[in-house]
Design a protein around this nucleic acid. Structure first.
Lengths: 243, 243
DNA sequence: TTTCGAAAAATGTGATATCATTTTTATAAA
DNA sequence: TTTATAAAAATGATATCACATTTTTCGAAA
């Protein structure tokens, strides 16, 4: 486990506990954009535990800026349902329920299968080669136990496929689902261990090479379900009770 | 045509042209929330023409507030892809292309069919009665030529179905698609006239009463396609060239 | 008339101050 | 010890100011 996780593990309800690199942002990127990216990344990688609350001032202090850009970044993240603005104006990481989890998974399946098929006409061999490079990186990350890289490159793999369609308007929706699964995903991956059964990515690549929509749909669905869907109801209950 | 549209028609690229009631917001609603709702409503109802640009200060003046809450509202709307924040920091209403329109329609079909079916287990007779009341209101609005009411109540009809599922996480995505269709929808409705072929809502209601998923999917798909999908390619081209 | 360039205006971004509300803390009573 | 209550602190919301960048304006040169 990376040492950067310890603090959160100690006091689950503590806010503003920690995250990555504080302020090494490129030129031309606004503060708001930078904060948004940082927070989004942290949520995606499961740095924030469900139920945890954050404050504008706390984040501003942590990221060495004023409340204004933080507030806008939070507004965006809540628009994408990565954070929840409670009626009492408190900002929390949404809690997971078995029902919500199922909705998220089924929605991932629907959106991503469809997006893959809609991208198919735009797929070329160069892009498939690129996908194989990414997939190789994922395999290496799994072996190395590098969860962050695994999660990030897995998303990159999917994003690369779907965005082959230049007019794809579902990408923000897919990203929103990923964001909502983020706080849960980290815990799930820990519980599940690394028992990756079959490499669905290789199935997807084969389907893309064959330009076969049905195979592609099946591969994407299988991959999504393998990711978080395969958890038995008992395991889900265990994880849910935790956060 | 409501008189409230004239200004925009006169000078299509003018910004901050007009909208509804300026400041009659309920107590407890924050300024940002109010502005967000106003702008969202305006976009949904096609008050903003594709390509039109808005400014923070302009909207702030128009709505009699400071730039701060306006910026946050705009941030939210761009997160929902109802507005576009250009790299040169200008804020514009996205333009429509034939490809994007097709993506939007197909995504509506996928999302809404699925959401309807996922709501089916939660449907009760009281809710179906409610739907019939809403549908009657729509019929009346169509006859009266009240486009605003037609659009609003049509959305309410769909929302009422999908939100019967208390864990539905696709509603924000559906609303985002509606938002993106907004600026186009108004023009499309004007071009198409009122030739509503068959009342798909009544088909949907029948399917709900029968608790029949297949019928429901078919009815929802037909309704969505009737809405904007039925436009021939020529008509689309005409409309697109306009904005 | 068109094109170019500098001044002026407009605009987005971010920091700070103020206010209202909420949360927390501290103190006292049961 | 627990509960209730009031003071204190924290927090979110908004307005305002300053700054950097972009856009527009306007006049001179081609």
């Amino acid at each position: 486990m990376p040492s950067s996780m310890t603090k959160i593990d100690e006091k689950p309800t503590d806010r503003n506990s920690l995250f990555l690199h504080a302020n090494n942002r490129e030129k031309g990127v606004t503060t708001q954009e930078h904060i948004y990216a940082q927070l989004r990344d942290a949520i995606m990688l499961g740095r924030f535990r469900p139920g945890m609350s954050v404050t504008i001032r706390g984040l501003a202090e942590l990221l060495k800026t004023s409340p204004t850009p933080v507030r806008e970044a939070l507004r965006r993240l809540s628009s994408e349902n990565g954070l929840e603005l409670l009626p009492n104006r408190r900002i929390v990481v949404p809690r997971m329920t078995a029902e919500r989890l199922e909705e998220l998974i089924e929605t991932r399946v629907e959106l991503e299968r469809f997006s893959a098929v809609r991208a198919l006409p735009f797929i070329n061999d160069r892009l498939i080669d690129e996908l194989e490079v990414i997939d190789a990186r994922i395999d290496k990350a799994v072996l190395a136990g590098d969860r962050d890289k695994q999660i990030r490159d897995n998303q990159l793999f999917h994003r690369t496929i779907y965005c082959a369609n230049p007019d794809n308007i579902r990408m923000p929706m897919v990203e929103s689902v990923w964001l909502q699964l983020g706080p849960f995903l980290r815990i799930a991956l820990r519980e599940m261990g690394d028992f990756y059964k079959i490499d669905r990515h290789k199935e997807a690549i084969a389907a893309l090479r064959a330009r076969d929509p049905k195979l592609l749909r099946a591969a994407i669905e299988a991959d999504v379900r393998d990711g978080v869907g395969q958890l038995g109801h008992d395991a889900v209950a265990t994880i849910l009770s935790e956060g």
